[in-house]
Amino acid sequence: MKTLLDVENLSVTFPTRSGSFEAVRGVSFSLGQERLGIVGESGSGKSLTGRAILRLIRPPGKLQATAMRLEGDDLLAMSDRQMRAVRGRRISMVMQDPKFSLNPVMRVGEQIVEAYRQSSGGGRKERKQRALAMLESVAIRDPERVFNAYPHEMSGGMGQRIMIAMMLIPDPRILIADEPTSALDVTVQMQVLNIMDKLVSERGMGLIFISHDLNLVSSFCDRVLIMYAGRVVESCRADQLYDAKHPYTRGLLNSLPRLDAPRDRLAVLKRDPSWREPLAAQIPTSGMPDE
């Protein structure tokens, strides 16, 4: 499998009054043309890892890594200008909540057209055609109406699909999706996942899928990284997530209520300080084992 992204020893630190706080600590992984899930609870550093790939860490936060390469290009050595050319064009990101990611005073169509103009130019008519086609490809039934609508006129599910259309119009190599479906109803959630799934299998895109939903990640992704306190504590094949070994992953799985296995009381996760420490054994970082 072709490696699209290679991250080695990534850390993100924030200075605080009591010394510096390491939100992401020594994360290494590589991404091919696959669906890579990153799961963890709030504060585990999973979203920051996604943002760090695009170097979107606001000062005073500091990003450090031994290496961060996109198809061989060193992301760390790029100037801000070169980085802007990467964002949106080669790596796109979909955020959790469309309400805060779309410009409220700009029509949906204009926003999508702008994304297209940034990446490939094209004439006015062509741009509109592309935007309409893109809206259609994310299962929006009436693209013409949506094109002329404002974000507040759209439901959450529509907004999220518009965001995805916007992020995909430059045909990126990698899509980072940060909880792209947690604000959506289950039925719409499946549609959005199907769209992203097709992009991976048809266009050979790499997808980083950040989520706290273990069930969803294990059924949707190929490979999963489990993060705790800024570190990757375990990595495994997604379909083997339920056989995970690490006590943290086991604890998370046991705390889920399940329809097929009812219990009177749910297991409560007891956190062990040793989980914060680096693992003795090196985590396999590339490819899918046993394949």
Partner: peptide
């Protein structure tokens, strides 16, 4: 989070 959800669901029951 799911681990906190478990605590709250236990509390409710």
């Amino acid at each position: 989070d799911v681990s906190v959800q478990a605590e709250i669901l236990n509390l409710l029951s």
